[in-house]
Structure formats: structure tokens, C-alpha cells
């Protein structure tokens, strides 16, 4: 019943995520990038930021970190993994999710609030949302354009791996307006928008809270 939030050098949304899971009174610990034992965790969250400076390519160095080898095992056991923003990039680099995140269509970093459509609600993550529900979540990324070759996109779509699509304006040029996906089993998800930034009424929106509540409830019932 426990959340672990990975901290790479350069992670900068780690505390933001922990703030939300702790608000929900979920036991939470920070996981240092060199840690090799995460067997106590039910849910691993890879937060936003610039892991290892995002040098070479976003997430490309992080995938080789000691903790990621454990996260891969954790995922193989069917346990839950969520990658947000840079975390999504890390998961695609690590091969836990298909596709890649490339530079935004207009080549600029974009910080804004965007509309998303919830595509699937049969996963623990999204069980608190309704099918087709429109959420408004913050984004903040320079490399958020989801890209995959045609065959991969077809597989993603055929398998129903898309969780969230941009609704209305597509901010970064993502293929098929893809904002968030899961693996085939549905235990690993990645998304560019920041649900943790829309989880506190004081800041004006709680559209992202459902995601943490959903997985928290599931983790408890396991």
C-alpha cells in the first residue's frame, strides 16, 4: 500500500507529487536514483523534471540508473508505475511504454492548461473519471510531442492503450492527439500533463486528483 517517488538528480516535481499523495494520506517515500531495493512499494511514480539534466536526450540517461532496473522488475511483476512528463519520457526510453517524446511542434517550451479527453476508465488509474470526460490539466514541457511509427501507433490504438487525448487544440503536435498511454497490461502509464498540479483546490483545480485517488484506492484493496 505504498507510494515511492523516484528522485533523480534534476527531478523537480518529486516533492509536488509527494505533497499530493501525502494529502491523500497515502504512505509515501522518496526513492533515490541509486536505490536498488524498492520491493516495499506498490506504486512507483517517476516525476517531472530534467533527470540528469536531460542531456543527450530526455530520459536517455535515467533509463540506465540503478533504480530504473528495479522499476522495470516492479512493472514486470504487474505492480503500478506512473510516469509524469519527464517520467513519461523515461518510461519510453526504458522500453516500458512504446513511442517517444520529441520536441514540441513549435519548438518552444509550453506551460499552459489544456483540455484532455479521458479515453479509458477501466483501469485503476482512471476509474474515478467517466468515459469521455473532459479534464483541464497543466502541461509544462519542451519535448512533449508523442511520436511513434505507423505500425506502433496502430498497435497502441488497436490495443486501446491510449488513456488521454488532447481535446480541442493539440498543443505540441502529438500523433493522434495522444497525451497519455499505458502498456498492454495497463499497470504502467505515462502522461505529459501534470495531474499533481491540479490536485489542490487552493490552486484552482482538482481535475488531476482522481488519478491519485483511483490508484490509491486500488492499491489499498489489493
Amino acid at each position: 500500500m505504498k507510494f515511492g517517488i523516484v528522485v533523480f538528480p534534476g527531478s523537480n516535481c518529486d516533492r509536488d507529487v509527494a505533497y499530493v499523495t501525502r494529502l491523500l494520506q497515502q504512505p509515501t517515500r522518496m526513492v533515490w536514483h541509486e536505490d536498488t531495493d524498492i520491493s516495499d512499494l506498490d506504486v512507483v511514480i517517476i516525476p517531472g523534471g530534467f533527470s540528469y539534466g536531460d542531456y543527450l536526450r530526455c530520459g536517455a540517461i535515467a533509463r540506465f540508473s540503478p533504480v530504473m532496473q528495479q522499476v522495470i522488475k516492479h512493472a514486470e511483476q504487474g505492480k503500478f508505475v506512473l510516469g509524469i512528463c519527464n517520467g513519461f519520457q523515461v518510461l519510453t526510453e526504458a522500453g516500458l511504454l512504446p513511442g517517444a517524446l520529441i520536441r514540441n511542434r513549435d519548438l518552444h517550451f509550453i506551460c499552459d492548461r489544456v483540455s484532455l479527453k479521458v479515453v479509458r476508465t477501466d483501469l485503476p488509474w482512471t476509474q474515478n473519471y467517466t468515459q469521455g470526460e473532459i479534464l483541464t490539466l497543466p502541461i509544462a514541457h519542451g519535448e512533449g510531442q508523442f511520436y511513434a511509427d505507423e505500425d506502433t501507433i496502430k498497435q497502441i490504438e488497436d490495443n486501446g492503450q491510449v488513456l488521454f487525448r488532447y481535446h480541442g487544440e493539440n498543443p505540441n503536435g502529438s500523433v493522434n492527439n495522444i497525451a497519455g498511454i499505458c502498456n498492454v497490461k495497463g499497470n504502467v502509464i505515462g502522461m505529459m500533463p501534470h495531474p499533481e498540479r491540479a490536485s489542490d483546490p487552493v490552486l484552482g483545480s482538482t481535475d488531476g486528483l482522481g488519478l491519485f485517488k483511483g490508484i490509491g484506492a486500488r492499491a489499498k484493496s489489493d
Binding site: 523537480n12 517531472g48 517550451f109 487552493v202 490552486l203
Partner: peptide, 14 residues
């Protein structure tokens, strides 16, 4: 200009 700046990280921007 400000759309290029992350103005929400740290979760305190009111």
C-alpha cells in the same frame, strides 16, 4: 513570453 516559462512547478502558484 510566459507560456515558455514553467510557472507552476512547486505547486504553489496561486
Amino acid at each position: 513570453v510566459y507560456r515558455q516559462y514553467d510557472h507552476q512547478v512547486q505547486n504553489n502558484t496561486v
